[in-house]
Amino acid sequence: MFAEFGSASILAFRTASYTSSIPRDRRLVLEQMEHIGSDSLPLVLIIGLFTGMVSAWQAAYQFKGMIPYSFIGAAVSRAIFIELGPVLTALIIAGRVGASIAAEIGTMKVTEQIDALESMAISPIRYLALPRISAAVVMLPILVIFANIIALVGAFLVSNFYLDVSSKVFFESVQRFFFVKDVLGGLVKAVFFGAVTALIGVKVGFETTGGAQGVGNATIRAFVLSSAMILILDYTLWTVIF
């Protein structure tokens, strides 16, 4: 485990050492931003909407007989901004993007495409790792902003249509208990989640051996590791930020 952590840290530092080449490689970074960000947006919006809706029901269920429904907006929005938005979005990206990074780079590894890059004096870390990690670091917080907004809309729809909470009451409650720190804290977490998801995908991809089966295993491994790391980081960052 310590060896794994050490090799991941080395990969992270080596990737960071190429940061100055981002302007030169902007086309590669933009391609990855599209893949990680734009292409993930529909899924993030759907899951965000339903997360917000179910959160409103959950809050109503827990409030029943104890707390007035006028507080649903505050409770749900804070849960979304701090936890649900960043963590669920990161888990979606771990499944959709982290696994695909591992599969793509793993396939390149077993078909000698990584060796081909090396033989052409092109660093695979600069060419493959840097665009993916930097794009994930930028795009995940942006996806979280979208997820937060749509989840809030979902919570409002349920509150308004099924729980008889007017829009005025709902949004006043959101506003009254709104803290910038909640949103920023969630976005800071998203930056770390993006970095760790892409880093694990790249690392697992580079370490892939054994043909198609190896690539399949790499995909699963990347998803499992990055999901676990997201939850561990979530706890760690909570203790630091909040």
Binding site: T107, M108, T111, E112, Q113, D115, A116, E118, S119, M120, A121, S123
Partner: peptide, 23 residues
Amino acid sequence: KEKDIYRVRRNIGFLFQGSALFD
């Protein structure tokens, strides 16, 4: 060092067994 290895590699063409084209 990596930069010296890359300098040498710029003078080398390598045909891989499985072609290793970027798909």
